[in-house]
Every structure is written in structure tokens, then in C-alpha cells.
Design a protein around this nucleic acid. Structure first.
Lengths: 64, 64
DNA sequence: AAAATATTATAACACTTTCTATAAAAAATG
DNA sequence: CATTTTTTATAGAAAGTGTTATAATATTTT
């Protein structure tokens, strides 16, 4: 499961809009949208923020 | 107190090298160095990370 | 003090993020 | 169903970031 898929997976699981998730992670809507559509990979800090968010929500990817 | 000054202030108060602080904040050494030398301002996420770090360390800037 | 090591300053390049705007698609409302 | 509203997709430009490298400065060690 690549990063872009993880983002969409988590977002839909939590029923958040791209705007909502952007706000949760303190990034812009454009960033979330580009992550999901594969244009870019996250920065070091952004990846950490996303991972921390997932951990908070008890979302695990290992078995997917 | 502008951002560049805050970074240096916090870093020296905690006796951290630029490299150390970079590691704490999950950004690169170059980013910390640029922040301190005023070349750039932090991204939205980076600013939050820095503020969170300062809060963790109980560092307040209001009265400086 | 001299040499070695660590820290800081600076820069180029590619990539990422933000901001802003526009259009398409989906969902909600009447 | 038609209209309105929300969400998503996309993109250009400007700014920020990571990587890498080099040089200058400061600190430590011998």
C-alpha cells in the first residue's frame, strides 16, 4: 500500500473531506489532494504528522 | 521577536545544536539553519511542530 | 599553541508545499 | 428532476525543504 493509497484509505475510513484532513494535519488542502493523486510524496515532517495522526486513530496498515 | 530569533533562542536555551533541533522537529539541518539566518519562514506544518516543541519544553515568548 | 573535531553558514538543485483559481464531479436541497 | 452546495481534481507561480557539498568558525583534544 503506497502512501497515496494510505492517505485516501485513512481519510475515507474517518469520513473526512480532504479539507478536513488537511486541517487535522496542519497542511493545505492542495497537499492532501496531491498526496492522494500521487503527484508528490510527503516531506519528512509531513510523513511524521500523518503517521502520528494514524497512530492516534489506531489505524494500522500492516495487514492491508 | 521574529521567528528566526525564536528558533535560535529556544535552541540555545536547550543547548542544542542545529542538527539536534532538526532531529527533534523532524526537519533537516538546512531547514533549521535557514530559519535562524532568516532566509525562509517555516511551512504551516513546520511552524506547528516548532510551537508544539516549545510548548512541550514550557518555553513562552510573550514577555520577551 | 597546534591539530583534530564539531558546529555553523552558505549555496545549487530537485522536489514539496502553499496559495490561488478554475472546472468537474458528487452530494444535498428544494 | 433541477438547482444549489460541497467535494474533488488540476494547475501555475512563489516559497519552503531535503540532499549534498564546501568553507568558515568555534570547540575540544593532544
Amino acid at each position: 500500500m503506497v502512501f497515496s493509497e494510505k492517505v485516501k484509505y485513512v481519510r475515507e475510513k474517518l469520513k473526512l473531506s480532504q479539507e478536513d484532513l488537511a486541517h487535522e494535519l496542519d497542511v493545505s488542502f492542495a497537499t492532501i489532494n496531491r498526496w492522494e493523486n500521487g503527484s508528490y510524496n510527503p516531506s519528512r515532517l509531513a510523513r511524521k504528522a500523518f503517521e502520528g495522526f494514524c497512530a492516534d486513530k489506531n489505524i494500522i496498515f500492516e495487514e492491508i
